[in-house]
């Protein structure tokens, strides 16, 4: 394959994704599913920077996501501040939170790191639930509904502009991931993944590498939180700070797709989100609960077949086809 194959594949994919919504109902169901899939692909990719490259399995990324969602929405409600500015402020707060969190967690490894981050996410959920005067408390918070269309205020009459915002965000995040992966930081992070002590011995500043990776990841996750809030218009602490709804799902999408790869979160989200939807729409009414069951079974099966996820699975299938074809 030539070295132009993957870039041209990316260009084709982006072009298709840009033209696709024009064929759909701009307020419809399909476009909403695509938006959610892109949201989670972007979140999976953000998680992939720390979870994938450095193998720092975080189960607390909902903390950043919720900070982004709440910061922009609260500022919008109180001061009619544009969600773009609110989103940037949310990123700043998320980075500060990531720095704060890194003080006690950066030396932790494996399960201990996962548990510590899990706790951080839960702490944010409790705060959002109890600090009702600011966050609206357990009932949740709504983005004020404006009937005027405005890009500055991220208010649109249809979902189509949201779709393009998600698409642009996803493309940027993939580029960031690719840049990190192929750059010096990516090598440092992979060195940490392989053997942290050895990495330190050969002169990698592991603390700094992990810190940069986690702040970038936190900032991206927070901005996606803002985009989500402006797309969903209503959320509560249990949703945006949820373990199952955000933290684990982000990790799951990256892991199922192929951890540490550029394509992984994209494949993971493209698979998981439509499947969840399909399961809910076909079993939701008749045998409620079966949808989650079926979904769980499929995930287990995929991970059993190939623990390295869909990317590896596709590679495996490709190899089999090529070897059967008698190449070499």
């Amino acid at each position: 394959m030539t070295r132009f194959f993957y870039p041209s594949l990316a260009v084709v994919a982006v072009t298709v994704m840009s033209l696709l919504p024009l064929t759909l109902d701009p307020q419809g169901y399909e476009i909403r599913i695509l938006c959610i899939a892109m949201l989670f692909a972007a979140l999976g990719q953000a998680w992939n920077i720390v979870g994938g490259l450095a193998n720092q399995i975080s189960l607390g990324h909902a903390a950043y996501f919720g900070i982004g969602a709440y910061t922009s929405t609260i500022l919008l409600r109180l001061f009619s501040l544009s969600p773009w500015l609110g989103g940037i402020l949310g990123m700043v707060l998320a980075v500060l939170f990531a720095l704060l969190l890194s003080v006690p967690t950066v030396r932790l490894k494996g399960h201990y790191f996962a548990l510590a981050t899990l706790g951080a996410g839960e702490a944010m959920r409790v705060i959002a639930n109890s600090w009702a005067s600011v966050t609206g408390g357990p009932v949740g918070i709504s983005v004020p509904y404006s009937r005027e269309s405005s890009l500055w205020m991220m208010q649109f009459p249809t979902v189509l502009p949201n779709y393009y915002l998600f698409l642009i965000a996803l493309v940027i995040i993939c580029l960031v991931f690719w840049k990190i992966q192929t750059g010096a930081l990516g090598f440092r992070l992979r060195a940490i993944k392989e053997n942290e002590q050895a990495a330190e011995v050969i002169g990698v500043d592991t603390y700094r590498a992990k810190l940069i990776a986690s702040t970038v990841s936190a900032a991206i996750t927070a901005f996606m939180g803002t985009l989500y809030a402006q797309f969903q218009f209503f959320f509560d602490p249990d949703t945006v700070f949820g373990v199952a709804t955000i933290s684990v799902k982000m990790a799951l999408i990256a892991i199922l797709g192929g951890v540490g790869t550029l394509l992984g979160p994209l494949l993971g989200a493209a698979f998981i989100i439509p499947m969840e939807e399909f399961a809910n729409s076909y079993f939701g009414a008749s045998v409620a609960g079966l949808s989650q069951f079926a979904y769980g079974v499929i995930l287990v099966v995929i991970i059993l077949i190939n623990p390295r996820g869909l990317v590896a699975l596709i590679g495996q299938i490709k190899n089999r086809i090529f070897s059967k074809g008698g190449s070499q």
């Binding site: 307020q27 419809g28 169901y29 909403r32 599913i33 959610i36 949740g140 969903q232 209503f234 959320f235 509560d236 949703t239 709804t245 939807e277 809910n280 729409s281 939701g284 009414a285 409620a288 949808s291």
Partner: peptide
């Protein structure tokens, strides 16, 4: 009839559908 589950995002998607 559709299952709202216990997730607001899912409930909104169901409504859209």
């Amino acid at each position: 009839i559709a299952d709202a589950t216990s997730n607001p995002t899912q409930a909104a998607t169901v409504a859209q559908r």
